[in-house]
Nucleic acid binder design. Structure first.
Length: 187
DNA sequence: GCAGTGATCATA
DNA sequence: ATGATCACTGCC
């Protein structure tokens, strides 16, 4: 590897900063949009993998007819009613783990679903690739959990984000058409 | 187009 | 205890 390239990469790594809890303590749609281009980082033992996030969805609160928190606080959704910056994982269709991060204020259930990062397309495949499951439920998005998110200085070009309705929520009435899915165009 | 797969929750 | 549902994926 040429020295110049190595120097640039080292500079990029040095500028990486783990997103703080305050980043997540905002409306889910804002967080979902700003998570694009950030890096989802997974550490297992000595191995560290960082994947650039290119697709997210926002579930914005109890009034959102697609949000799991709409039926109140249950065993599964309890973490969504807690503070922002914690992982919400759940199993769907008996097979696929989904990864979300809790956003917003305490007692107001909201989260962002990770639908794509790196070469993974789809929330189930992403969790399979990074070995994410029930063990992450309720853990903070920090290095000590082995799963966190970094800002590595990537800036999205103007008009670089596509907004569409969310996937797989046709039951959600008026909310099924709201553009709460965010996609990085050059992904 | 649709089967696979099992946790979760409401109902009883 | 039982049954419906489900923020998906991969193969037909």
């Amino acid at each position: 590897m040429p020295p110049r390239t190595a120097a640039i990469q080292n500079a990029a790594i040095q500028s990486a900063v783990t997103l703080p809890a305050e980043f997540y303590r905002r409306p889910a749609d804002i967080v979902a949009r700003e998570l694009l281009g950030k890096y989802l980082v997974r550490r297992i033992g000595d191995e560290t993998v960082a994947l650039q996030i290119h697709e997210t969805e926002a579930y914005v609160g109890a009034h959102d007819l697609a949000c799991h928190g709409r039926f109140g606080c249950t065993d599964r959704t309890a973490v969504m009613f807690g503070p922002a910056g914690y992982w919400y994982t759940y199993l769907i269709y008996g097979m696929h783990w989904m990864l979300n991060v809790v956003t917003g204020e305490v007692d107001q259930p909201a989260a962002v679903l990770f639908r794509g990062a790196g070469n993974s397309r789809g929330p189930g495949k992403l969790c399979r690739e990074l070995s994410i499951d029930k063990s992450h439920y309720g853990l903070p998005a920090t290095a000590k959990s082995g799963l966190w998110i970094e800002d590595r200085g990537y800036t999205i070009r103007r008009g670089g984000i596509l907004r569409t309705p969310r996937i797989g929520i046709d039951y959600a009435g008026a909310w099924k058409d709201k553009k709460l899915r965010y996609v990085l165009k050059d992904s």
